[in-house]
Design a protein around this nucleic acid. Structure first.
Lengths: 183, 183
DNA sequence: CCACACATGTAATATGTTACATGATTTA
DNA sequence: TAAATCATGTAACATATTACATGTGTGG
């Protein structure tokens, strides 16, 4: 089985919400699933080609245009449900921030503080995006079916971002103590 | 520059805390950094070989044994500091749980609930591990220098796990509402 | 002396990103 | 009409996992 099942899941899933081109697929995945998923061009087109070979998606040429819209076949929907039912394969974590803090003794408190500040800022920006996403989801008529589930992922993002902010504040306090050793 | 800088950072960092064999390196990374980092055998040995070629680590053969201990050279410490100072490269997220929930309409509330239950259980287990790790770090004499920084990463893990648990409880309530549509 | 953990490494494979090539369509 | 965006795809490269090959030391 070439092409990761997980990429197929994301692609079939996105097409289950609405048919679209490969290009749009990448934009949707980046903009909508971006906080917890990513696919690159180099994966999307070959994966689409294979899904087409297996009759799981259908390409519909737009009249007088080179671009084509992909949509799920019945077999594609069945396949998607099968993939979703499989246990999520745990992704190998690679958190560059934590790696740096872990060896922070080599870096010094100042640089660590800056890393934590950056992380906090990013979490705050995530929080803003999540709020915007929530109202988009609630107002998009294409998403009435999917909305309750999508909202779960948005809530997860918010919880995670708030946890990061709370942790960052604690961490900054700790780092300040390290900076000025008691005299 | 072959071999990701990030792998080198993890390896040099681990060796900065204490010299060890390649085998031990993998065990340490799995057991100690496991919650936010991973390296596999296939990366560690080639990376060590290259670090050795660049005189960033030194191999010391143990008397009458085939195994050897790697330790940092002065250039290695300098290199490590340089790597740590670089901005963490954001890892492409791939959260299988969120992917499944996002398309949960295809899966149904029951299966989604099970996924969330599993996630909560895992977070609870993480919380237990973090507690154990904290007391280990506080009692290991090799870690006196590094401890304050390592504790930051443990605290981060705890915040994140607690956020997951809180979210899971909310999500389960939402999913129950979906299961029994009002009549 | 057998099984298991320690130890080093390579090869095959899988996965994923980036840069490039190409051209159509839209918008300023 | 020039520039930006949309659109499809490939090739080269980078990265990472898994299985395998090989052998040593140690405890039951």
């Amino acid at each position: 089985m070439p092409r990761s099942d997980q990429s197929q899941t994301a692609i079939l899933g996105a097409l289950s919400i609405m048919p679209m081109t490969g290009y749009a697929l990448r934009e949707e995945i980046r903009d909508t699933l971006g906080h917890f998923w990513s696919e690159s061009f180099g994966q999307i087109y070959p994966a689409l080609a294979e899904l087409e070979r297996n009759r799981l998606v259908e390409r519909r040429q737009v009249e007088g245009s080179r671009s084509s819209t992909f949509s799920l076949t019945d077999a594609g929907i069945a396949h998607l449900r099968g993939l979703l039912a499989e246990a999520p394969q745990p992704s190998k974590p690679r958190n560059g921030l934590m790696l740096r803090l872990f060896f922070g003794a080599q870096l010094g408190p100042e640089a660590c503080k800056q890393l934590v500040l950056d992380a906090r800022e990013q979490a705050e920006s995530t929080l803003t995006h999540m709020e915007a996403a929530r109202s988009e989801v609630l107002h998009d008529p294409d998403l009435v079916q999917a909305a309750p589930y999508i909202l779960l992922t948005i809530t997860a993002g918010e919880h995670s971002a708030r946890a990061t902010i709370a942790w960052a504040n604690e961490a900054l306090a700790q780092l300040s103590d390290l900076e000025t050793p008691r005299r």
